[in-house]
Design a protein around this nucleic acid. Structure first.
Lengths: 215, 215
DNA sequence: AATTCGTTGTTGCATTTGCAACATCTTTAA
DNA sequence: TTAAAGATGTTGCAAATGCAACAACGAATT
């Protein structure tokens, strides 16, 4: 279990991490691409740390449409309890993007008042604050994208945010075309159609996952 | 300036609140319905506390469509810096829902290490954590609603979340029909059309702002 | 090398949605 | 009280989108 580079344990020395993982009774599991790590409709009061690979938090509706709610890269955190309201969770799953390893910790371990009141523990709590803040920013970005009324606007809004983030008119998409459609919550074929038009109109250039905004 | 009931100052005694407001150099302003409190495209590194009334964080697009991103009730907090990424903010405003009063504090006042290192200050930081967590939950709920593909699904999803929150099949909408359309990011007339169908099909009952789920 | 599985591109067609325009009703302001 | 402004309900029409189906391509597996 190597959590040295994870956001939750940032600033904590390796040996301390090991000690805390034991104290927290952390467990590690391995997954392969497509595996479902957990189902948010169940009571999930643990947090998961992605120690290798990347995962998506997805929602499936009655018609089989998949929407990506969050895309979580290596070292990121997932967990229902600190992001989704108790009543939500129906149809929401954490799914592996590729082969993954995740470390699980019961959430009360984080919030509990440690009998040994160690300094590292308060560091973890402080890191947790940063993670939640960062998640809010990602959720709000996503919300801004989905608030757009047309597929074209959703795409441009999404591209502009990525472009601003990378500080370049040209950038790599963090996921496949299929996943992009699931992220902006539109039909994949309709999205492809729109992307084609945008390329023809000279608004964007596209090469595999590389996008360039031309204005 | 009365912030005693606000989420940011929860658990802090009245006299302490007054002292902190002075220390933080807080300023109070009054607004009337429809007033724009601030524009997130500008560098806004303050937080605003709604001490009376309620506000919406809205986004307007090039075509004049308005989307409600957040609905903030009395005692709630708004502020770009802790929710939206630096690159976002284009076209985003905080607008008064009705006559409002807001107290403003520069954000560094919250995060600074107080020379007097008071206990209350750490209480405010702790409250801030709760507020950000709560905001995440609201953002994620909203995201789940917007991830639905059709107007009907958006409405039902929104209604189910409200119903679960109030623990009743029957509940009051927190905003007008026009605002509901702006919250679910669809055309108002199309939404009305869909609501009519749903009433005819016996899926819901509706009376002004009161909704009842019939299944 | 062959096969399977998943991703991407494409298109016709039906449906949904947005838009515009207007009538009615309600609330606010003069 | 009246006028004005805003909210709600309604509808026809055009445009956007979803859906289904299939072909082409590529990666992974046997």
């Amino acid at each position: 279990m190597n959590v040295n580079n994870t956001y939750l344990f940032r600033g904590i020395e390796e040996n301390e991490c090991k000690r805390m993982l034991k104290c927290f009774q952390a467990e590690e599991k391995n997954y392969k691409s497509g595996d479902i790590i957990c189902n948010y409709s169940e009571k999930t009061d643990f947090i998961g740390i992605v120690t290798s690979g990347s995962v998506n938090v997805v929602r499936g509706d009655e018609n089989g449409n998949i929407s990506i709610l969050e895309h979580i890269e290596e070292n990121g955190l997932f967990g229902k309890y600190f992001i989704y309201p108790a009543s939500a969770g129906e149809g929401i799953y954490v799914v592996c993007d590729c082969a993954c390893t995740a470390v699980f910790i019961e959430s009360f371990q984080i919030t509990k008042r440690c009998s040994k009141a160690c300094i590292c523990h308060s560091m973890v709590v402080s890191n947790m604050f940063d993670i939640v803040t960062e998640k809010s920013k990602e959720l709000s970005s996503h919300l801004i994208v989905l608030s757009c009324r047309t597929t074209r606007e959703k795409l441009l809004c999404c591209f502009r945010l990525l472009s601003a983030q990378r500080q370049s008119k040209s950038f790599e998409l963090p996921f496949s075309a299929t996943a992009l459609a699931e992220y902006i919550c539109v039909d994949r074929s309709a999205m492809t159609r729109e992307l084609k038009k945008m390329k023809e109109e000279g608004i964007i250039k596209m090469n595999k996952r590389n996008i360039e905004l031309l204005y």
